[in-house]
């Protein structure tokens, strides 16, 4: 009986020590970290604030000052040639004057 008791006690003590060691070794894993570390989730995919160059011309709140003052080609009374875009495709870039229809 004493041998059985010793075996059980040794197995339990070994299990405690081994598990503690395993937890300490794998503590860098966020899935096994302490609960406080889990309660504050780390935001990795924060929404990036677009740079002013990436904003559309109408999104700056000033009525689209970046559009160069031109009208869309299909705007009534526009002086732009049909099929041409007076608004630059990308802000800061040169206006495209290539004809889309030809």
């Amino acid at each position: 009986m004493n041998r059985s008791r010793t075996t059980v006690a040794a197995a339990a003590g070994t299990g405690l020590v081994v598990l503690t060691g395993v937890f300490a070794i794998t503590s860098h894993d966020p899935s096994t970290a302490a609960p406080q570390e889990q309660s504050h989730p780390t935001v990795t995919d924060q929404p990036t604030v677009p740079s002013p160059d990436q904003l559309p011309p109408w999104a700056d709140g000033h009525g689209g000052d970046r559009d160069g003052g031109g009208f869309p080609s299909d705007w009534p009374g526009s002086d732009a040639q049909p099929g041409t875009s007076a608004t630059p495709a990308t802000p800061g870039a040169a206006p495209s004057t290539s004809s889309q229809g030809s």
Binding site: A12, L16, V18, L19, F23, A24, S27
Partner: peptide, 13 residues
């Protein structure tokens, strides 16, 4: 974190 590891290990044991 040692106490936390011991708590987890002793709980499982």
């Amino acid at each position: 974190q040692l106490y936390w590891f011991i708590a987890r290990a002793s709980g499982i044991t």
